[in-house]
Design a protein around this nucleic acid. Sequence first.
DNA 1: GCCAACGTTGGC
DNA 2: GCCAACGTTGGC
Length: 157
Amino acid sequence: MSYWLLKSEPSSFSIDDLAKRPAKRDSWDGVRNYQARNYLRDMRRGDLAFFYHSSAKQTGIAGIVKIVAEAYPDPTAFDPGNHHYDPKSDPSRPVWYMVDVKLERRLRRLVLLAELKARRELADMILLKPGNRLSVMPVAEKHWRAILQMERAASPE
DNA sequence: GCCAACGTTGGC
DNA sequence: GCCAACGTTGGC
């Protein structure tokens, strides 16, 4: 069982959007970075991932999703009309993959990026590494636990 | 294989 | 909207 973090811009897909899907479940499509794809392929059913809101008024961790289907070819890469179309990928030799996720729960509150940055024990999180732009990344168990503790604590003012 | 140009990401 | 960091592309 592993832990992960998935980034999404809430203006395109937010945790509220996921909550409205049938069975609160959807595919995590559109990943077009090789390292992120490799992490997607490492995910196993039952793994948990933080749902991170990027490029928003408030950036931070909004909730937890469970991996409910392991990586399979991302059909949006095959569709010339799709924003994420990639001619390098075709059904006989797919390049891009996606997993299915299900909303486990929202966090009690948004745990802000600024809070994560302020915690010394999270200093070596991939998310916080300077210049990091990965949209899919692993999360160490100690970091996962620390963030859940932060959720329980009051929001700093 | 090098590397400049370009596009994207994402915080601020 | 700005811009730094990074990844990708394509000419050579």
